[in-house]
Design a protein around this nucleic acid. Structure first.
Lengths: 348, 348
DNA sequence: CAAATATGCTAAAAGGTTTTAGTATATTTT
DNA sequence: AAAATATACTAAAACCTTTTAGCATATTTG
């Protein structure tokens, strides 16, 4: 039960009767470069191993300015989309020696501003960000400062930065086409009232598809940051007000979940009474009765791209830094919820 | 676009023509204690505010040994249970000025050992841990070292530490009773092959209920860390081998999800052919057809207890430290999946 | 053989803060 | 009026590294 005092680089140096600098250089792989003899380097390494010395990361960070920590900002870690992407990012980051410190924004601008300031204070080496609208200034400043940074899921209107997003417009366009091709004439879009770019893109794909069929749009914007019951009430009112709407597309996973609950309460059969498609895939959609057609995002590939983009920025020279904007293709996963029984195909 | 150099405490002191110590003391609220005059204190505060000086957290941490970071270890951040609890913990921690740095263990002992070492290196102030078995030594050492620490979800057999867990035995006991009360005579338990304490408790509750009814156990242990397809194959084989099993209980959310998929593939009707209950609640279970009866854990309350327990340890004196083990009651949420149609009640 | 270069290592500064022990003056007590 | 105490600060050590500039000594070059 010996309260053994934390061992320091100084102790190593003393014991081996060399200077602190020597130990440090060896430990940081600069022995060759700084002409420490192989014999001595080996001796240092051996003793360090023996006593299990680990440099104090705080002191190291203070001196080098590097923390090997990546700040990850998501909308809500409890949201399956973000939880999944966070899990994947974490794993890949860890494999490259980086840790993740994360925060959820709840899409609250003030809270997010605080989070960014906090990350900065903590000297994170890089940022992976899915931000609410309204932080253009902060992010621009960050980019200008040369901090490695990757936006994902959504970008900020006026900010030029590295980004990995999904081509939501094409996703919803194809999904809407799929519904219209079956003869539906009244397809609604359930989205959120918010300027987030990914939501705008998803809406645009829907709009384009309807326009090509000369059909009117039917968009319901869910007021943001209500509690679940309020959201569902709004949806319920919408569906009741539009009994002739026989198809609906939800622009994000939690809207889809709420929507399913509402349709269930209303006793609407899927797809007989109303065809359903949601953005984002998850267990619920896959296993629901009937299984829900979704526009799935390529989670694994996105995580991979995000991390490698960030690593490139982390390792790259400040001077050569170029912004990369990557748009990935989503995948329409057809399931029963959007496939009308043959009889119905013509009816509407 | 001025590349303004980071302002330091030294700059503040110089500009106000006082010592660095004075500025530091004022900033840390020790002006009164150290008898800095009100006038000067105010002047310092004003100027600091004016130039927006923020102390370097690394330097501060190096000096004080406090980082205001909490290390959170979960099994898998993409698992809804852990994602939800993580989200709640994050919010509450933030409200108290603590940040979260998290890692997923995948129940891998070696990986977890690394994570703990990493947290230590990063000087986290406290730990919130849901660990795989086999790290008794590490955690004991951590506890002995006096580091604030709270285990949750599961404890470690031989380790005495703060902990917040759910009374899983009672949860499954009541759930099983509920099934047996309806006349079922063959109820299976689908659990994982692993010594995690929460799983053992859940199994025990099931065992006790069956014993009271003089019925034989029917336990299938899913081999850990297979891929989804393998898990489902194992389950499928089990259900096929036990056609007379008319009730099943899953001991954790992802087993439940896999189970539903398998039962669907097999065309078994719920609850007519087989009644289903799962541990943990989530959107899928709530909205499934039929809705799935669950043993729900009190997420919000657990998060609250975890954080307040950790904060108590963080603020408490080293000397007075007492271990608290808290067991919370889960809630059996009855839904259709476990309620047999009247006709069936007697049949079996 | 002197000068130049290579080799092998180290002293000390730097990174930015907190905190202890102490100093100088002002005030109170005896 | 001397001694004791209170007041208002500050100098410098401490936290633990990394890294630059430089110092001996050994080797090579001209």
């Amino acid at each position: 039960m010996t309260l053994k005092k934390k061992i320091l680089i100084h102790d190593i140096a003393k014991h081996l009767d060399v200077s602190i600098a020597t130990v440090s250089l060896v430990l940081n792989g600069k022995a060759k470069e700084k002409r420490i003899s192989d014999g001595l380097a080996e001796k240092v390494l051996k003793y360090v191993e023996e006593v299990g010395y680990k440099p104090n990361q705080l002191a190291k960070s203070l001196r080098t300015g590097k923390t090997h920590v990546i700040g990850l900002v998501v909308e809500d870690i409890a949201n399956p989309f973000f939880a999944t992407i966070a899990g994947l990012i974490e794993r890949k980051a860890l494999a490259h020696g980086y840790r993740i410190i994360y925060c959820s924004t709840s899409n609250d601008i003030v809270k997010t501003r605080d989070i960014l300031a906090m990350f900065q204070e903590r000297h994170v080496d890089g940022y992976i960000l899915a931000l609410p609208d309204g932080l253009e200034g902060e992010v621009s400043a960050l980019v200008r400062s040369g901090k490695p940074l990757v936006l994902f899921d959504r970008v900020l209107a006026s900010v030029l930065a590295n980004a990995v997003v999904v081509d939501g417009a094409t996703g919803t366009y194809e999904a809407t086409q799929h519904l219209l091709a079956q003869g539906l004439t009244s397809v609604a879009l359930m989205t959120i009232r918010d300027g987030q770019t990914q939501m705008l893109a998803r809406r645009q794909g829907y709009t384009q598809a309807l326009r090509e069929h000369n059909l009117p749009e039917l968009v319901e914007e869910i007021v943001f940051q209500q509690n679940p019951e309020q959201v569902m009430e709004q949806m319920q009112a919408f569906f009741q007000a539009h009994p002739n709407c026989h198809g609906v597309m939800f622009t994000t996973n939690y809207l889809g979940v709420y929507g399913l609950e509402v349709l269930k309460r209303l006793g609407r059969r899927i797809p007989e009474d109303i065809a359903v498609i949601s953005f984002d895939d998850n267990d619920l959609f896959r296993l629901y009765t009937p299984p829900i057609t979704v526009v799935a995002q390529p989670m694994e590939a996105m995580a991979e791209e995000i991390i490698s983009m960030l690593l490139a920025a982390l390792n790259g020279s400040k001077e050569t830094s170029r912004m990369t904007q990557l748009q990935m293709a989503p995948q329409l996963v057809l399931r029963q919820s959007s496939t009308l029984p043959a009889a119905a195909t013509v009816r509407r």
